[in-house]
């Protein structure tokens, strides 16, 4: 089954609004929110969860103040600056602890516990646009590629069990761990850009990333009318890198109105953006079909 992930490099280009619209146009795909750090897709889809699970990943060190000898071996060994003196003894700063266990191993008094981290929660929900797999990391936790991989696995199992041919994922901003984890083996990365210096710069980096991992790319320019010159620069980049440009969407206030109404913009009404989104969806289907056929 084709798996499509919507990413952008730069945040706030319109990934989530576009993902919701594509999910609406796709007719009940499996929907997956892979932005586990600051997920927003649920605000448009109002999911009703029927399965909820805790997500635990990695560990953190905690020094027992009664057992600590105050020798400072842990502080010397820690490369993350996570161990600090507290009076005569030492304490671990959980914000800085990487969970490497080095202090635990070398503590001569065996005074350091190594506790599993409860990092977040994931869910499977029904929504009016399709079944949705989503999660929320607890604030401040490591933005785990593992959680992204887990959600994608759940989505695949659901797709198989329900004989559903398509998975649409809303990705995270950036080019780091969660994005890399959301890209491996997908059929198409839809990159949403915007005609600004940041949009262009970040598109280029995310395109390099996709090339590095051999993931095919399609590009959508959002709010293209904001700067026709910058839009042309993005078009040039697409040509140069042989990335199909599947749509140029206009700035449309219906996007915010739909967000306020808790709907996909294509559900909300007949804004100027809808035509572009329909066109994008047709082109994306054709690209994934061609790839399957090849």
């Amino acid at each position: 089954m084709p798996e499509i992930v919507v990413i952008s490099g730069k945040g706030g280009t319109g990934k989530t609004s576009i993902t919701a619209a594509l999910a609406h146009l796709a007719d009940h795909p499996i929907i997956c929110d892979l932005d586990v750090d600051a997920p927003d897709l649920h605000l448009l889809l109002q999911p009703s969860p029927w399965r909820q699970e805790e997500f635990r990943s990695g560990f953190e060190a905690a020094i027992d103040p009664l057992a600590c000898l105050g020798c400072g071996e842990c502080q010397t060994r820690c490369r993350y600056g996570a161990v600090n003196p507290r009076g005569e003894i030492y304490a671990v700063d959980p914000f800085r602890c990487e969970g490497c266990k080095v202090c635990v191993h070398f503590c001569p008094a065996q005074a350091i516990a190594f506790n599993e981290r409860h990092c977040g929660r994931w869910q499977i929900s029904d929504t009016r646009l399709g079944v949705m797999v989503h999660a929320q990391l607890f604030p401040g936790q490591e933005n785990s590629g593992r959680l992204v991989a887990l959600l994608r696995q759940q989505a695949k199992e659901l797709a198989k069990a329900r004989d559903q041919a398509l998975i649409i994922c809303d990705g995270a901003p950036g080019i780091g761990c969660p994005v890399i984890s959301s890209l491996s083996g997908v059929d198409l990365a839809v990159v949403v850009s915007e005609p600004t210096p940041s949009g262009l710069h970040d598109l280029e980096r995310v395109a390099q990333l996709c090339e590095h991992f051999r993931v095919p790319v399609a590009v959508i320019i959002n709010k293209h009318d904001l700067s026709p010159d910058r839009s042309r620069e993005i078009e040039d980049l697409c040509r140069l890198r042989r990335m199909p440009l599947v749509a140029q969407l206009p700035f449309d206030e219906a996007v915010v109105k739909a967000m306020l109404a808790g709907q996909a913009v294509t559900e909300y009404g007949q804004g100027p953006i809808n035509q572009g989104l329909t066109q994008a969806w047709q082109a994306i289907q054709a690209l994934t079909r061609d790839r399957r056929a090849a």
Partner: peptide, 14 residues
């Protein structure tokens, strides 16, 4: 700072 509220974002504001 980078967007988000996970480890990299906290790292940036520390």
């Amino acid at each position: 700072a980078p967007p988000g509220v996970s480890c990299p974002a906290v790292n940036a504001v520390m």
